[in-house]
Amino acid sequence: MRNPRGAIRQIELLSLKNTFVHRIKPLQQFIVTLVFILIITSFDQYSVSQMLPMLLYPAVIIVLGEIPLRFIIRTILPVIPLIILFAIANAFFDKSEWVLLSGVTISAGWISALALVLRSLMTMTAILSFIATAGMNGLFSALEKLKIPDFFITLLAFTFRYIHLLMEEAGHIIRAYRLRSPGQEGISFQNWGPLAGQWFIRSYRRAERIHSAMLCRGLSEKIHQNYHDRAKLVDLTWIFFWCGYFILCRLFPIPLLLSKVTIGTGI
């Protein structure tokens, strides 16, 4: 597991790369990611194999965008126990029988659990890949172009910046505490209250100073995003290619068709 500040910083660093995917406009990337998520959630709860061709999208983004697989795994890792918990609950509640190839019967819940895990992992990977290539500013500019009200975008941008700040201040406080409490494991219980209070006050005052700096540089009611040029042919091709591919995956059971073509059986 890793500290959230490190994860946020790594996302920002990754988004500064200059690869083919990074050059695609954030709005087009956002639309493709959104369509991917919508199609993934539209699959039947037992459609494990039919969902597999969708893996191509996150895999291609990771390779083309040069996103380290370790980064994806480390960022997703904290959420995995929660997904597994839901998946296992699914397996226990869905009691209908499912006959496997060998004649062994299992609860259908295990199949839907597998589908749930696959669905969640693919969705999270797609979102992370989008953020790691477009960056948070890319997300904000995509939302702005989609005419999402300025208030929500500003709120989101400030929240993101505030998380950064909270983590930084927490880091400073914990470092100062550790330096003055040698040999002590963690933070002693009686210090939790004062430290949390200090954390809040320091973060609040720092946030105020940053806000003042923003005001001094002409911030009004909204944060103006970095407008990119108009979409080029490659951006539009990107959308049409991927959306077309996702729709194909959704409408036709590609693995089944492949199996029919190769071994000539649909069963």
Binding site: V48, S49, V60, V63, L101, P253, P255, L256
Partner: peptide, 25 residues
């Protein structure tokens, strides 16, 4: 069962799909 990939065709198709994706990557 076919869509889930627990039949012969489902399993073969799934493996072929993964193979194709890996090749592309």
């Amino acid at each position: 069962s076919v869509l889930a990939g627990t039949t012969i065709s489902g399993l073969t198709g799934s493996l072929l799909t993964l193979l194709i994706i890996s090749t592309v990557i």
